[in-house]
Amino acid sequence: MQVVLPYLIAGWSGFFVMAVELLGGRLMAPTFGSSIYVWGAIITVFMLALSLGYLAGGRYSMRQPSVRRLGVLLLVAAATVLPVLLFGERMLDAVSIAMPDPRFGSLLAATILFFVPTFFSGMISPYAVRLLVRDQASSGRHAGQLYFVSTFGSAAGTLLTSFYLVLLLEVNHILLSLLAVSGVIGVTAAFSGRPAGAAQ
């Protein structure tokens, strides 16, 4: 489990991020439209949040790394999507009134809604690398395998969401399903194995 879970969490997190990004476009369209700059704003925020998340995840992995903490990161990323479900629409309307320019309005709205969950999602990959790497010689292989799993998850999340899920479910129901899966995986990891720092 101590090897399987980091891969599973990284792969699912990749799926989760891209599914939320696509649905983010859906959620913002009624307020900001589907102009090219709305997508530009969303992608910018996701990329920026991921990049800073990578930095933070790497730093965080230096103190007593454990699968349990990795699970908690996944849970936090999921929990911070909840405000999107609860206040998303009201927030979007308020931003569009406060900032009528659709470019910066959508940039601000995407930041408020999606920066935090994506930041925590970004922390997961470098943290998982730390858990998998045993020695310097195999570090590249482990990192490569982890990138594979994570980006493959992103591809799957993009395809399934845009081809199939939106045809079956409402946007909020898809988000809730994503949160449920994150919850199951995160809780499994958080209660798995030995506590951080415990003796073998």
Binding site: A29, P30, T31, F32, G33, S34, S35, S96, P102
Partner: peptide
Amino acid sequence: QDGRVFVK
């Protein structure tokens, strides 16, 4: 501009 943004 986007039609929906205009309408709102």
